[in-house]
Computed example of a mutant assay.
Amino acid sequence: MRIVVAPDSFGGTLSAREAAEAIAAGWRRAVPGDDVRIVPLADGGTGFAEVLHTALGGTVHTREVVGPLGDPVTGSWLEVDGTAYLECAAACGLHHVGRADRVPGAARSATSYGVGQLLADARSAGVRRIVVGLGGSATTDGGAGMLAALGLVPVDEDGLELPYGGAALATCARLDGDADLGGIEIVAASDVDNPLLGPHGAAAVFGPQKGADDAAVAELDAALGVFAGVLATFAGREVRDEAAAGAAGGLGAALLALGAGVVSGAGLVRELVGLDTELDAAAAGGGPAITGEGSFDWQSLRGKLITAVARGAADRGIPCVVLAGQVSVGRREAAAAGVDSAHGVADEFGLEASMADPAGTLAELAATVAPRWGR
């Protein structure tokens, strides 16, 4: 039987490749006769550029940029045949922010300035197209920092440059300067379709993950509302309610204002790494497709990677099985998304054990599940 193992990264514990290798190891141990193929995936968030580099090759460009808290961090982007693949988390990801720093103050002041520096670096390199993977950010600044790094500086009524962070956008009056992209095509590869504002927006949904309490969420949502008007004036249209405007702390809205097109990050990676070819082979060999991520929750059903794998499996009439760190999606919701079965490492072995040995417990979960689906 041919098995395709195609997971996303597992939060900050396992990369997509590490997760795939752990699942494959457990599966082979339990059902040694199965032909297990691994296809590490990403949906625009953490691991986006790494997965594409593994699949496509290309040149990795590395430079020091401003991190989410204003300190220097090392960022990178991938160049392949005139296209730059840039992962926003490389410059402003949560992994750059220690757990102790995920407090309301950091949530209010975190900046996407480093993302703009990576974009400017790719622009200077002469690429024709820049694909920005959105997800895993520590910021809720509406992409204001990114725009400032590109030459479009958010200022107040007196023309004074605003400090870093989303909270400062409450006094934003306009964008000063110019961001000459030289005709470069910009693509936003998003892991979610959330709008910028409101109960499903950047602050309300993702702010708490970044340390924002209720007061900070309300403050950031109000400030982003002000900035949405500034972006609308600049772009000549409203972008606040467009799909993916709320991605990566509102970075999606700024990219939309720059004229970016939006694609599914999961769908783009699925195409570039040849997942469909592997799913075809699995269908011919009896399936199933195995996917997963750190937390299989309601956000997973809003255009993230698991749904892309599940759709591909359903199109071929093969089962899709999810192995995740934690599972909070009900069976009915999972089935509606095309997932036949979902299993959580924490549910099986406990949260403490899963965090202490993420690869080992994930492999053990795969070994437990494999006999139900393998040869």
Score class of each variant (00 low, 15 high):
R2W: 14
P7T: 14
T13E: 13
S15R: 08
R17M: 14
E18P: 09
A30D: 02
D34C: 14
D35M: 09
D35V: 08
I38R: 06
G47W: 11
G47T: 09
G47R: 05
E50A: 13
H53G: 14
H53A: 15
T54W: 15
A55P: 10
T59K: 13
R63M: 14
V65S: 03
V66T: 11
P68R: 12
P72K: 10
P72I: 10
S76Q: 13
E79T: 09
D81H: 08
A84N: 07
E87F: 12
A89P: 05
A91E: 01
L94W: 07
G98I: 00
R99A: 14
R99N: 08
R99P: 00
R99V: 04
A100L: 05
V103H: 09
S109C: 14
A110N: 04
S112K: 05
G114P: 04
G114M: 02
L119F: 08
L119V: 13
A120T: 00
A122K: 05
R123M: 13
R123D: 10
A125C: 07
A125R: 11
G126Q: 00
G126A: 02
G126D: 03
R129T: 03
L134P: 03
G135I: 04
G135S: 12
G136H: 12
G136K: 08
T140G: 08
T140R: 09
G143K: 13
A144N: 07
M146Q: 04
L147G: 03
V153D: 00
V155D: 00
D156R: 04
G159I: 03
L162N: 00
T171K: 09
G177L: 06
G177M: 00
G182E: 05
I184Y: 08
L196M: 12
P199K: 11
Q209G: 12
G211F: 11
G211I: 06
D214F: 08
A215Q: 07
L224I: 04
G229K: 11
G229C: 12
F234H: 15
R237P: 06
V239K: 08
A245C: 12
A248L: 13
G249T: 10
A254N: 06
A254W: 04
L256G: 02
A257M: 09
G259C: 06
A260S: 09
G265E: 07
V269T: 10
E271I: 10
L272P: 01
L272M: 10
V273K: 11
G274D: 09
E278T: 10
E278M: 14
A284D: 12
G292M: 08
G294R: 05
G294H: 09
W298L: 15
W298C: 15
Q299D: 13
A313T: 05
A314W: 13
I318T: 03
G325K: 07
Q326G: 15
S328Q: 10
G330Q: 00
G330R: 05
A334F: 02
A335C: 00
A337H: 01
V339E: 01
A342R: 01
A342I: 02
A353T: 00
S354D: 06
A356G: 05
A356L: 03
A359I: 06
G360L: 11
G360V: 05
T361S: 11
V369F: 07
P371E: 00
W373V: 00
W373K: 01
R375V: 14
